[in-house]
Design a protein around this nucleic acid. Structure first.
Lengths: 207, 207
DNA sequence: GATCAACTTATGTCCGACCTAATTTTATGT
DNA sequence: ACATAAAATTAGGTCGGACATAAGTTGATC
């Protein structure tokens, strides 16, 4: 098991590399900075970077696991009497209130960096697909059976999150303020989740 | 302008390279075959392959444009009195009847090849995202205004197609017959599109 | 304090993507 | 028919990311 110093150093090194890399990427663009340059700036060898981060994209999306598990956790921990849609909608409002980073609200430079890099966009798509699949698995675990319908419900719920995140990214790129974006997202979420209400509003109310 | 022979030769070369490549990929796996090997097998130089196909994945998904434009075309060409959902649902049934290749029904080997290659899966995600965006643009063009709601509707419609295609891929990998898969997809489509009925069933009925 | 395990490094290979210049093939005008 | 222009193809090279291996270094443990 991790013994004090060694493990702490690892986390420090990891974070230092990730922070420096993200700053360099935001500054010069993801594809314009090589792993070697990141390694040099961080004062480590190239191999150390690739040891910590299996893929270059991981330098940017180090906390992808939280996004991937987010929706499934919300569904799994919802209170009795709450439907899937209610839980996801309630959680979105809460995330907005606490300015959760996973909603896609970011600095103009970060948003532009992601939007202009094919590699990062691909990674975002993969993360969102995994989130949807994880959500579908959580729903399937609750209903006891996997099915196309379960995956459709998961897809619809995840799609709302995804479309709202895209809107957040768009507004971030446009340079809007966090408060401005949050207000817009709150209004948009009303409409978006409301659209699903007649379809899956009563789906899987927890007993 | 394209003058007979020259253009025809190009298309022949392009198709020959693509066919040989797909066969080699299906046989040995996408990542196990290099572009050089494809070039050798096709009797051309490596540069010729990369001239025709900007990315290695394009050797497999040469007709991506058809998938990307499919839903938008369906929506844009639907008849008066038809809603968005009705048009997409009707078209799906028609595509199923004609065993359209874009539905995801394929040979076991092809399905396995795609499913086991991270690069190909990434390309599939990109194609599906582009299809959704193209559909959203078509809907926005009709309503006269883009919005989060429009993108949500596009996302929901595209999601059904995507979930059904994933099901097709899963069954293809499992070695089910085309007829077997078509029957399962027809039934699944009933449920999947039916789920959206109360949400967007009356949305954008063409006048 | 010596030993072991884990972390880091140096070095090198492989492949996809890309570039440039040279060569071959096709099309066109006289 | 032939020369010339245009386009396709080729050869050879660079670069970066991913990966493998072995050697070196540092922290942990008895």
């Amino acid at each position: 098991m991790p013994s004090g110093l060694r493990e702490r150093r690892k986390q420090e090194t990891r974070l230092a590399i990730s922070d420096i890399a993200t700053a360099m990427f935001a500054d010069q663009g993801f594809d314009a900075v090589t792993i070697s340059q990141v390694a040099d700036a961080a004062g480590v060898s190239k191999m150390t970077v690739t040891n910590y981060f299996a893929h270059k994209e991981d330098l940017v999306f180090d906390r992808a696991g939280e996004i991937i598990d987010g929706l499934a956790t919300v569904v799994a921990t919802r209170s009795p009497g709450e439907s899937l849609l209610d839980a996801v909608r309630r959680d979105y409002a809460a995330a907005l209130a606490r300015s959760d980073a996973t909603l896609g609200i970011s600095s103009q430079r970060f948003a532009a960096m992601v939007a202009t890099s094919p590699v990062l966009l691909a990674r975002v798509r993969e993360i969102l697909e995994l989130r949807e699949q994880t959500l579908a698995a959580a729903i399937a675990a609750e209903t006891g059976a996997d099915s196309v319908l379960v995956r459709c419900v998961a897809a619809q719920l995840a799609a709302v999150h995804r479309v709202l995140a895209a809107e957040a990214s768009r507004r971030s790129q446009a340079g809007q303020s966090r408060e401005e974006i949050k207000a817009a997202l709150a209004a948009a979420a009303e409409h978006a989740f409301g659209l699903l209400e007649p379809a899956i509003g009563g789906y899987l109310v927890r007993r």
